[in-house]
Simulated assay, not measured.
Amino acid sequence: MTQAIELLRPSQIRAELEVRSLVYLPLGTIEWHCEHLPVGLDGLTAYGICSSAAKKTRGIVWPTLYYGTGGDHGEYPWTIMMEEAAELEALLRKTLVRLAALGVSRAVLFSGHFAEGQLDMIDRLAAETNERLGLSVVATAVNRFEIAGFAPDHAGRFETTLLAGLHRETIDLGALPDLEAGDDERDRHDPASPLWGVIGADPRKANLSDGSRLVEEIATRLAALAIET
């Protein structure tokens, strides 16, 4: 049975939460990730990892919230970034209040977008909810799991490999030019750069076959955090 709440009937939701009273809330964005990656990468990875974790712990996975805040690339093509966190906080706070009222014991805010403003927002919401409601909330993000050989980045080797473990068909490394001397001397915020918007290790050096292992490692650690007492 699926654990995606939008596909479940009320009786199925009750049955799943009786096994473990846990809801995963994946957060992402629609934003530029260079020419080789889809603009929904952050949400796709957050949802995929939450779904994998939920298979280990049981519980429900909420639909992805495809908006985010923070970062310095809000004017890139096909990017919508909220200037302030207030609008997102209102949606998430209401969701957490309702989950508490419905008797859910534990919620996980998991963000695929890990700009500082986004991380501050989820940490603040978790602290606020834990203090005021009878709902235990843990907040974390894809960059908070240290994986040897995979430093977190934006549209680089890490994010490209991670997405490959979930939606490899969406990746086109051929959309990037061949490696040339001097590539890394260009400002990657310059549209003339072959790696425009890539902040981190060159994705052209990624081994996409490592994707499944990377997803599994992060999902396993997220699952452990989700049920930690």
Rank of each mutant, 00 (worst) to 15 (best):
T2E: 12
Q3Y: 10
R9T: 14
P10F: 13
E16F: 00
S21W: 04
H33Y: 02
G40N: 06
D42N: 15
A46E: 07
S51A: 11
I60V: 10
G70R: 09
H73Q: 11
H73S: 13
P77Y: 08
I80K: 06
M81F: 04
E83V: 05
E84A: 09
L91F: 08
K94V: 07
T95L: 12
L96V: 02
R98I: 06
S105T: 08
L109N: 07
S111L: 06
G112V: 07
E116P: 00
G117E: 07
L119M: 13
D120Q: 13
M121H: 13
R124Y: 14
A126L: 09
A126P: 11
A127L: 09
T129M: 15
G134Y: 03
L135D: 00
S136I: 03
S136F: 08
V138R: 14
T140P: 02
A141Y: 15
V142M: 02
E146C: 02
G149D: 02
A155L: 09
T160W: 00
L162S: 02
L166V: 07
R168L: 09
D178L: 13
D183R: 05
E185S: 12
H189P: 01
D190K: 07
S193V: 05
P194C: 05
L195Q: 09
L195G: 11
G197M: 03
A206H: 05
N207W: 11
G211K: 07
A223E: 03
L225H: 05
A226Q: 06
T229S: 12
